[in-house]
């Protein structure tokens, strides 16, 4: 299986590569559109600020490539947010794969939310074998409100959408590569159980 991790300069891609290695899969870090188009699975990571990450995608032409992919794609954290239509952070137009807006937490709780929180209302093969209310590691200030394409929900002062799916596109707000054994199971499900 050929796995491409999109490397466009936004954040810690190494830890995803290492997590896949622990599962017994090799992957390539790449910004080359041919490599990405011909991969069997594509992982779209990202940390940092939305508008500068989007600019980096545009400068490599990947903003056109990603929405056209036919193979399963998994956006992680900012990757998931950029797959949405619009991010309030930096007034950023996203890739519009998900018809969702990403807005800022408006709460008395600490922002960013940092740490382990539970996920529930799990749908889709991405969460096969994963119990409701499993813990995942999250770091974020912006979130997707509850949504028709939601496949997992979390709660931080309010219920919000923590994973999305439409056709071959998946997005998770949490970091499966940093969420212990349960997180590794999500990655494994993406590789094995999520098909075109």
């Amino acid at each position: 299986m050929k796995i491409a991790i999109i490397d466009y300069g936004a954040g810690n891609v190494k830890s995803i590569e290492f997590a896949l290695q622990r599962l017994g899969y090799e992957s390539v870090l790449t910004s080359d559109s041919e490599q990405i188009k011909t991969a069997d699975r594509v992982i779209f990571p990202g940390v940092g600020e939305a508008s500068s990450a989007m600019k980096m995608l545009e400068s490599t032409g990947l903003d056109k490539v990603i929405p056209e992919l036919k193979t399963p794609v998994l956006g992680i954290c900012l990757g998931m947010q950029l797959m949405c239509k619009y991010c309030v952070e930096g007034d950023t137009q996203g890739l519009s794969i998900f018809d969702a807006e990403v807005i800022k937490f408006d709460t008395q709780l600490k922002v960013p939310q940092v740490g382990w929180n539970t996920i529930f209302d799990l749908k889709s093969n991405l969460f096969k074998g994963i119990e409701n209310h499993s813990y995942m590691y999250l770091v974020h200030s912006y979130y997707v409100p509850e949504h028709q394409h939601s496949i997992a929900t979390s709660e931080y002062d309010l219920n919000y959408c923590v994973a999305l799916n439409r056709d071959n596109f998946y997005g998770v707000q949490f970091h499966p590569e940093k969420s212990g054994k349960v997180g590794e199971r999500v990655l494994k499900n993406f590789l094995v159980n999520c098909r075109q």
């Binding site: 190494k14 830890s15 290492f18 997590a19 290695q21 622990r22 590691y137 970091h175 590569e177 940093k178 969420s179 212990g180 054994k181 997180g183 590794e184």
Partner: peptide, 11 residues
Amino acid sequence: VENIAKHINIP
């Protein structure tokens, strides 16, 4: 750090 990242699945 690289060695830790290879083996540890928490932040």
